[in-house]
């Protein structure tokens, strides 16, 4: 049965985040009571997820390398690592190194319950690995090609492992040609445990209702949305049941795709899309 391989230090998993850094990512989107540039919402979500993964894989002796993680930005004339600080320029990085090397740890203020019915403002530590960048076009085809190279190498080194998962977060149409064949090429890599998974998320500022994890393209508004849907892999069964447990309606053909995502569905997308088979 595909997508059941054990994820362990001897059999690590692989996440590649592709983050759109085009100019339009500076457009605002709603974030609670305020608005924030889309790029800021996305980089916050990725930073939070890297903390989440580090916590999930932490053991007595420290963070274990159950995963290797790449964060690749694509924007003006550039496709490459979006890590900052010591990890700058690196592609796939073992999770323990990620955990130990955020670019910085910010102190952010947050209102939390004071346990007596009121709210109190406290500061919380927030590790940061990537910052929002917005500039130029959306070279999605090149970004998928970049991921293709990383994935090809990974699959060759880990033929029996859980297949790599590529999560693409974008707000616009590809500006360097139809990405379909690049996506097909990427998903044609496979380990013995199944083909590479490509999940897509379309960020929106429009405020319309997000379409999360659809199982057909019928409800999708336009050809661009349909194209992203077709590029997205069907969710493996353990992610499907997790999505169901989180209140999503799913079927056997539910795909890893969110259209018109708001801030909540970005977090959900990352949470469901990086859900591993059991981690010990």
């Amino acid at each position: 049965m595909p997508y059941t391989a054990e994820i362990s230090r001897t059999n690590p998993g692989c996440f590649i985040f592709l983050v759109d850094q085009s100019a339009s990512m500076s457009d605002p989107m709603e974030s609670g009571e305020t608005t924030q540039p889309r790029a800021e919402v996305v980089s916050n979500a990725i930073n939070r997820l890297l903390t989440e993964l580090s916590v999930k894989c932490a053991k007595e002796e420290g963070v274990r390398d159950y995963f290797h993680v790449a964060v690749i930005g694509y924007g003006h004339n550039r496709v490459g690592s979006a890590y900052q600080g010591t990890l700058a320029g690196r592609d796939l990085v073992p999770l323990s190194e990620v955990a130990n090397n955020p670019a910085r740890v910010e102190s952010r203020t947050k209102k939390v319950s004071d346990g007596a019915g009121g709210l109190v403002e406290t500061s919380v530590q927030f590790p940061v690995w990537m910052d929002p960048v917005t500039n130029g076009g959306t070279p999605m085809t090149r970004a998928l090609g970049y991921a293709n190279t990383l994935v090809g190498h990974w699959v060759d080194m880990h033929p029996g492992g859980f297949p790599p998962i590529v999560l693409n977060l974008t707000d616009g149409e590809s500006t360097d040609g139809d990405p379909t064949s690049a996506a097909i090429g990427l998903a044609s890599h496979a380990t013995a445990d199944g083909p590479v998974l490509l999940f897509n998320l379309h960020v929106s500022g429009s405020g319309g209702a997000p379409i999360t994890f659809p199982d057909s393209e019928e409800a999708l508004p336009d050809t661009y949305a349909k194209l992203l849907f077709q590029m997205s892999s069907v969710l493996p069964s353990h992610m499907r049941s997790y999505a169901a447990s989180q209140g999503h309606r799913v079927s056997e053909s539910t795909r890893g795709f969110v259209y018109n995502a708001d801030i909540v569905s970005i977090v959900e997308f990352l949470d469901i899309g990086t859900r591993a088979t059991e981690l010990r």
Partner: peptide, 16 residues
């Protein structure tokens, strides 16, 4: 505390 990320967790499948 952990060296970088605040409170030091030891995580399992369903709990930290």
């Amino acid at each position: 505390q952990s060296p970088v990320l605040g409170p030091k967790p030891i995580s399992g499948n369903f709990a930290s």
